[in-house]
């Protein structure tokens, strides 16, 4: 759906912010652009909606170069969320959320329904916030409104520039979870800039890791963590990359390849099968016994899990190319 073809960006004649980047994003994919600051990830994002011009190469949307689109019309078909939300202080929450539908001249009934739907989606009461102003909301609420505003005209593509970067960790985690929930419902093609590898692993279908304007590795989170193709990748994701990769799998995933001992009588600690392996390991390490009991959604015991089995599973995964 979005094709980056040898994209380069040069500022003021000599500063190369992006160097010859090529990769494809399929429809409905959630792609994270990540890298240290100054790696060109934001420039790359801003070239998609033409806030920055492309110096060399091309970005192709559904077979058509972004350069051939009318900038204004194209931007209205892309949701855009930035770190500091960028809400308009002079407009009410309703006007802020409905800015693009207003520009597109939607009729009143359609706009009202859309507003109700969006506010329900982000979990804020439509009537309560309708006539409020941005400065009367907390940072987390403002950022939710920013997301709703970007989704307002139901654009197929969402561009998000560190949308949760300015929030405190607790609110950030909550908004990430909420946004994943929203994405399951709306199924957008998302390009998401982040500098936080945990966020990238948690949110992305694919991760594009950049350094000094170059694309170092474009792969699934599991491959980035377990099969780094470059020294910089393993450095960037950190020495705990195996631990991080464990949050990609649940106990249920493990059950597919490893059979548990079904004798559960002697174990006390319990985890659900939807628990991530990372959390399961944490529980295992905190108990005195060597094993924990795994139960399914209806609390029926499935079997006992040991550290050895987790290790076995991870080695299995590390052995598979393209997990």
């Amino acid at each position: 759906m979005i094709k980056f073809q040898n994209v380069s960006k040069t500022y003021n004649g000599n500063v190369k912010a992006v160097k010859d980047v090529s990769f494809n994003i399929e429809a409905g994919e959630f792609v994270i652009l990540i890298g240290p600051s100054g790696c060109g990830k934001t420039s790359l994002l801003r070239m998609v909606n033409q806030l920055e011009t492309i110096t060399e190469g091309d970005i192709v949307l559904n077979g058509k170069s972004v350069r051939d689109f009318n900038k204004i019309e194209m931007r209205r078909k892309m949701g855009y969320v930035i770190q500091s939300n960028g809400l308009f202080p002079n407009m009410t929450i309703e006007d802020n959320v409905m800015i693009v539908p207003n520009l597109l001249g939607w009729d009143k009934v359609k706009k009202r329904q859309r507003y109700q739907y969006l506010m329900d989606l982000i979990g804020l009461n439509p009537d309560e916030y309708k006539k409020r102003y941005p400065h009367q909301l907390s940072g987390g609420q403002q950022q939710r409104i920013g997301v709703a505003r970007a989704l307002a005209a139901d654009p197929p593509i969402m561009l998000m520039d560190e949308p949760f970067g300015a929030l405190d960790p607790i609110i950030r985690t909550r908004l990430q979870d909420e946004f994943l929930q929203i994405q399951r419902e709306v199924q957008k093609t998302i390009l998401f800039v982040s500098h936080d590898i945990d966020e990238a692993v948690k949110m992305g279908d694919k991760i594009a890791l950049m350094r000094h304007g170059e694309l170092i590795q474009y792969d699934t989170p599991a491959n980035i963590l377990l099969h780094p193709r470059h020294e910089f990748v393993s450095e960037f994701v950190g020495e705990d990359r195996v631990l991080k990769s464990m949050s990609l799998y649940t106990v249920k995933d493990l059950l597919e390849s490893i059979t548990l001992d079904t004798n559960v009588s002697s174990t006390q600690q319990t985890v659900h099968e939807q628990t991530t392996l990372r959390n399961a390991l944490s529980v295992l390490l905190s108990t005195n016994s060597q094993k924990i009991k795994v139960v399914d959604i209806e609390e029926r015991p499935i079997g006992t899990l040991t550290i050895d089995q987790i290790e076995q599973f991870l080695q299995l995964k590390a052995g598979q190319k393209g997990a």
Binding site: N49, L51, I72, E73, Q83, S84, N85, G86, L87, G146
Partner: peptide
């Protein structure tokens, strides 16, 4: 007027 607000306005397709 905050640069970020202007950036958001531009990015959403305001003329």
């Amino acid at each position: 007027v905050d640069e970020k607000t202007l950036d958001a306005a531009k990015g959403m397709g305001l003329t």
